[in-house]
């Protein structure tokens, strides 16, 4: 059939013959393969070397995100807008939930944005290992990159929806003070909490496929435990502390304070939330790193 084809002359000259530079490369890239340890370290230098790949993962997920949809990126606005509308009608109008001195629609929208960033990050990042089986079983890279990319991607949605928030703030003429400068801190707090939980869940997901079913169940309830539809200072102080065990409470009310003004978070409660978020992150990371060597075997 193909017997008439002729092989090209063999001497395809090596363009990069082993020279001094590859000798140097060799010294630089020494890979040691050994059994997994109980408490693996985080190799930050390696992560840094793979930063381009992290960028590529984020870029891929963004590219693919709204492919073959009609309204594309507008979904990033439509989803929180619809949720905020329902909140406004149900909780703002009928149930008269407290929103401080702020107009309920903008209050709800701001809260929903922070919440949706967390929820999207958690969803995407916890599915990231199982969602990339062909990669995980065929090629090596630090697996951390996948959940990491998962919490970066929804930041773009947040930015898009952020424009709408600014428009709404203009409409209701609520302008933030200097506190707006710390707004990114609260998103970072959401990122840390989401990443911590997602690290554990994504590792768990490689063994137990219950995870994708369990997450939505909790996501239904969690906004109410994170002070999304109501202002935190509208509940009794004792309950404020209980709610503050959930890092998202600090995220939602802190973010609202930063961008809309309103009551300043109580520092102690904020500290509690940050502490819990850091614990979740460390725990998640430790579990992830311990399970990582088994991903390809159990997935």
């Amino acid at each position: 059939m193909t017997e008439t084809k002729v092989k090209p002359p063999r001497a395809s000259a090596p363009e990069t013959s082993p020279t001094r530079s590859t000798e140097l490369d060799r010294a630089r890239y020494v890979t040691v393969i050994r059994p997994a340890t109980q408490m693996p370290r985080i190799d930050l230098r390696e992560l840094w070397r793979y930063r381009e790949l992290l960028g590529i993962f984020v870029w891929r997920d963004l590219k693919v995100r709204y492919k073959q949809t009609v309204i594309g990126g507008a979904w990033a606005i439509f989803q929180p807008a619809l949720t905020a509308l329902v909140y406004t009608l149900v909780f703002g109008r009928f149930a008269k939930f407290p929103s401080g001195r702020l107009p309920y629609p903008v209050f709800a929208f701001a809260g929903v944005l922070a919440w949706q960033y967390f929820s999207a990050s958690l969803n995407i990042a916890s599915a990231s290992i199982v969602g990339n089986v062909p990669l995980v079983t065929k090629v090596y890279f630090p697996r951390l990159l996948l959940p990491l990319a998962g919490v970066v991607v929804p930041l773009i949605d947040l930015c898009l929806a952020g424009f709408v928030l600014v428009a709404m703030m203009a409409w209701y003429s609520t302008w933030p003070g200097a506190a707006v400068l710390v707004a990114p801190f609260f998103i970072l707090l959401a990122l840390v909490a989401a990443l911590g939980a997602a690290l554990a869940l994504s590792a768990l997901n490689t063994r137990y496929r219950d995870v994708p079913y369990a997450i939505p169940a909790f996501m239904q309830v969690l906004p109410f435990l994170s002070a999304v539809p109501f202002a935190l200072d509208g509940v009794p102080l004792r309950w404020q502390w209980v709610l503050s065990i959930n890092p998202m409470t600090a995220v939602v009310s802190g973010w609202r304070w930063a961008v809309l003004g309103g009551p300043q978070p109580i520092l102690g409660q904020l500290g509690l939330s940050v502490g819990v978020a850091i614990l979740v992150f460390i725990g998640g990371l430790a579990y992830f790193r311990r399970s990582e060597p088994r991903f390809a075997d159990t997935i």
Partner: peptide
């Protein structure tokens, strides 16, 4: 892609 249960390997380059 996976780790060994025992042993060691070194790869230069």
């Amino acid at each position: 892609i996976t780790t060994p249960t025992a042993g060691r390997a070194e790869i230069r380059g």
